[in-house]
Amino acid sequence: MGFIALIDAGAGNLRSAVRALLAAGAADVRVTGDPALVRAADRIVLPGQGAFAACMAGLAREDLHAALEHTVRTQGRPFLGICVGMQVLAARGLEHGETAGLGWIGGDCRLLQAGAERLPHIGWNQATPARAHPVLDALAPSAFVYFAHSYVLDGEAGAAWTEHGERFASAVARDNILGVQFHPEKSQRVGLALLARFLSWRP
């Protein structure tokens, strides 16, 4: 039986993510920044709070970045990025200057154009899947999930959409890579259902 590597990039609410994954049915979740463990993991979850640059700096430690590239991109193991863990899938982050991202999805991570709405975007809002997806189907047709962010991943790659002043990508998906802007670990029943689908996902 394999395990899930929950990546510790230095600023996340890791305990919440661990508890939610266990409640969703995971047998073994290891919080780690150890490249060897990342390479051995069945699935990778990158939770994230904090700034884009801080998260990328956390991933740059001790060849962690190389281990992630290998496990996710070469081996094709299922990857879930949460919040900033989704944003770093961009090619560039534009929060406090320009920072290179992982680039696995592409596009820019830029400030949400909230218009007359308040910022940060904090609270429960609806995420509507753009198409069928084995994991994101947990949101269909349009579930309330919990958001806490000011930046969004800009691009064409929306796999789910949400409105707050503008329509932004609340999820992105490509092959074995999935990113969600909201917090499934804090989205009660819907969030746990989404995590359970991620755990049995065979992309």
Binding site: A11, N13, L14
Partner: peptide
């Protein structure tokens, strides 16, 4: 599994880190 804000006695950046590690979201 509900977002949890915790306050009281936060004096430094490290106090926030400790709260997040204990399970606070904010």
């Amino acid at each position: 599994f509900t977002p949890l804000t915790v306050g009281g006695g936060v004096r430094a950046v490290e106090d926030v880190r400790a709260l997040l590690l204990a399970g606070a979201d904010k």
